[in-house]
């Protein structure tokens, strides 16, 4: 179980998270949904122990996360992350093969030969040609680099994966492929997934449980397939684009969501 317990978090005087508790069990896929600036990415960084919470605790299997050295390394072996900005998350001077291999070098005891074989298998898993191992990041598209980051996160077979808008920049076909692949990986390996997104369609498609966040507070927590009850979460639901064109509408002035925030 990866758990955030009673977390408050501040940047300077500004409190961005208020008493946040959430947990992801092995094999479970949990979505955290909300608009921009509500605190989603802060939760991702805390869950990955990239930051320490001002108050409260992040726990892995009931043990608080180690602060440094061997204990923190043990945590990293179990919990990995993928972020939105693929190009910004790789070393532009390293080959794709080296980028994917990196966690294996630091967090596993694989031989160089075993690592190379693993890189090749991972490229196949994320549907990139094996020849890309020799390429540099600038030779790949943003979507391809995003898949490289996913391959890197999965390299050491983590027990938990945190994805922060990891598929947001991709086209629909790739989003659908990658979410399918993530679901299969969770089912096959028992990996737990915290999937952070502003796209409720992806969240519903992929996850068992949906948690909504607004202004640093978790405001709703529902089983996939059931409707949200909190107004902020329902506003997200209402902004979901239609599956198909709405019949008999002379003009395409699609009805606006039923809430009235003044600014975007």
């Amino acid at each position: 179980m990866l758990a955030l317990e009673n977390i408050d978090h501040c940047y300077g005087d500004r409190r961005v998270l208020h008493d946040v508790s959430l947990s992801v069990a092995r094999g479970e896929r949990v979505a955290l949904v909300g608009g921009s600036g509500e605190g989603k990415s802060t939760i991702a960084r805390l869950a990955l122990a990239l930051e320490r919470p001002s108050q409260g605790e992040v726990k892995l299997d009931d043990a608080p996360v180690g602060r440094r050295g061997r204990a923190l390394k043990a945590f990293r072996r179990q919990v990995q992350g993928v972020f939105q900005d693929g190009p910004g998350a790789v070393n532009p001077g390293h080959t794709i093969g080296r980028i994917i291999e990196e966690p294996l070098v630091h967090l596993s005891r694989h031989s160089a030969r075993a690592r190379r074989a693993r890189v090749e298998a991972l490229l196949e898993v994320v549907k990139l040609p094996a020849s890309y191992a020799a390429y540099l990041p600038h030779q790949l598209s943003g979507g391809q680099l995003q898949r490289v980051c996913l391959a890197r996160a999965l390299a050491i077979e983590p027990a938990y994966l945190v994805c922060d808008e990891a598929t947001s920049g991709l086209d629909t076909v790739l989003q659908v492929e990658l979410t399918r692949f993530l679901a299969e990986t969770c089912d096959r390996t028992g990996m737990g997934l915290l999937f952070i997104t502003h796209d409720l369609r992806l969240a519903r498609r992929l996850c068992h449980r949906l948690i909504a966040i607004e202004q640093g507070r978790l405001v709703d927590d529902v089983i996939a397939g059931t409707a949200f009850t909190h107004p902020a979460a329902r506003a997200l639901e209402e902004a979901v684009l239609p599956l198909a064109p709405i019949k008999a509408s002379a003009h395409k002035t699609h009805r606006a969501p039923q809430h009235a925030d003044a600014v975007v």
Binding site: G34, G35, S36, S168, G169, H198, D199, L200, A235, L236, A239, V240, L241, T253, H254, A256, P257, H259, D261, V264
Partner: peptide, 12 residues
């Protein structure tokens, strides 16, 4: 890159 509510307002 916008969240769904912001997206909806811009497209509208």
């Amino acid at each position: 890159d916008l969240d769904p509510r912001a997206q909806h307002r811009i497209l509208t």
